[in-house]
Amino acid sequence: MERRVSKFNYTLSLIKYGILEAVAAILMILWLVPLYAMILGGLKSNLEAASSPILLPPSKPSIDAYVFAWFGYATIPGLEPTMLRYLIVVIPSVLLSVIIGTMTAYFFFVLSEKHNILSNTLFSIMALATFLPIETVTFPLIELETSYLNIYNTYIGLIFALMIFYVPTSALLMSIFLPVVPKYLIETARIDGAGDWTILWKVIFPLIFPGFLSTLIFVFLQIWNEFFIPLILTNTPNMLMLPVAARFYTAAYALIYNRSFAAGVISSLVPLVIFIFLGRYFIRGLAALGGGAKGV
């Protein structure tokens, strides 16, 4: 009897595992199909891209659309300079947002030990920024950068604006990872005379590094896909950023299908590469969070 029950449980486990694998495969296919279609569309002629089935391989593959999208032509901006400009903005924005967000999360973590209600109240107010639509602060943001700070249409202005929205996001995410750290380690460091700066970066940070990387990747992907801030805070061709430049291929020139596909692929290259090579660290951070939530 026990043998039959054990065999039944084993069979049931195999069925569950098979279902999970099938669901994972379907989700992966759904995720890859748009990318596959864009890559193929960029290799087709405009006529073939507009008339043939989207998943059908090109009859005569050509990289002309990718060359056009990368270098541009006449009044249509190429994506090469705009991508380089955007990297100049995105990289410091991400690093500063996550580092300052980590320090902010630690501040509220320490404050909660002495004034829990005050900490929760202030942190909740700050966290509201993560849910605040960017469109609602368009005019105050432009007014601040033009009339008071004089950084409108500059790299510093874009970095400043992105940090306004993504420092709270980083702090919110890092505050989830901080409770994973055993409190006795912090108390021991304090007994040994360590200050908060030393405790954060020498004691806590090595333990929450997977969470830091997860937050870094998440914030990078969010900022890279940000369209509205570069749109409203730049107004000259030499400050045109990648998300806005890619719009030229999908809006005013939407009928040029193959170039639209090519521009979409080029715009997606950096986040794709980042996630392919660092995706495992993102998963590790989530796994570390799960372990901390269970008291590990």
Score class of each variant (00 low, 15 high):
residue 29 I to R: 02
residue 134 I to N: 02
residue 124 S to A: 14
residue 19 I to C: 12
residue 91 I to C: 08
residue 93 S to F: 02
residue 86 Y to E: 05
residue 89 V to P: 00
residue 281 Y to S: 07
residue 263 A to K: 00
residue 226 E to W: 06
residue 184 Y to A: 06
residue 251 A to P: 00
residue 242 L to E: 01
residue 142 I to W: 01
residue 74 A to W: 06
residue 120 N to G: 15
residue 202 K to F: 07
residue 202 K to C: 11
residue 262 A to W: 05
residue 31 W to V: 12
residue 36 Y to L: 14
residue 136 T to V: 15
residue 63 I to F: 14
residue 108 F to M: 05
residue 97 S to Y: 06
residue 172 L to I: 03
residue 103 M to P: 04
residue 203 V to C: 06
residue 186 I to D: 04
residue 9 N to L: 15
residue 36 Y to T: 12
residue 130 T to N: 08
residue 231 L to E: 04
residue 219 V to Q: 01
residue 25 A to D: 07
residue 38 M to G: 01
residue 176 I to M: 13
residue 272 L to W: 02
residue 9 N to K: 15
residue 269 L to D: 03
residue 33 V to C: 04
residue 165 F to G: 02
residue 143 E to W: 12
residue 185 L to G: 04
residue 47 L to S: 14
residue 77 P to G: 12
residue 187 E to W: 06
residue 40 L to K: 04
residue 25 A to Q: 09
residue 208 I to V: 14
residue 175 S to W: 01
residue 200 L to T: 07
residue 251 A to D: 12
residue 200 L to K: 05
residue 244 V to D: 07
residue 94 V to Q: 00
residue 37 A to K: 05
residue 174 M to T: 07
residue 187 E to N: 12
residue 271 P to Q: 05
residue 38 M to P: 00
residue 239 M to L: 11
residue 83 M to N: 01
residue 42 G to E: 03
residue 257 Y to C: 01
residue 157 G to Q: 09
residue 173 L to K: 01
residue 50 A to S: 15
residue 285 G to N: 11
residue 256 I to N: 11
residue 4 R to M: 13
residue 266 I to M: 08
residue 45 S to Y: 05
residue 116 N to M: 11
residue 135 E to D: 10
residue 153 N to G: 08
residue 48 E to D: 15
residue 171 A to P: 06
residue 177 F to D: 05
residue 87 L to R: 08
residue 8 F to P: 00
residue 62 S to D: 11
residue 32 L to Y: 09
residue 85 R to H: 10
residue 118 L to T: 15
residue 257 Y to Q: 10
residue 157 G to R: 10
residue 250 T to R: 10
residue 173 L to Q: 01
residue 238 N to C: 02
residue 96 L to R: 02
residue 70 W to V: 07
residue 12 L to R: 14
residue 270 V to A: 06
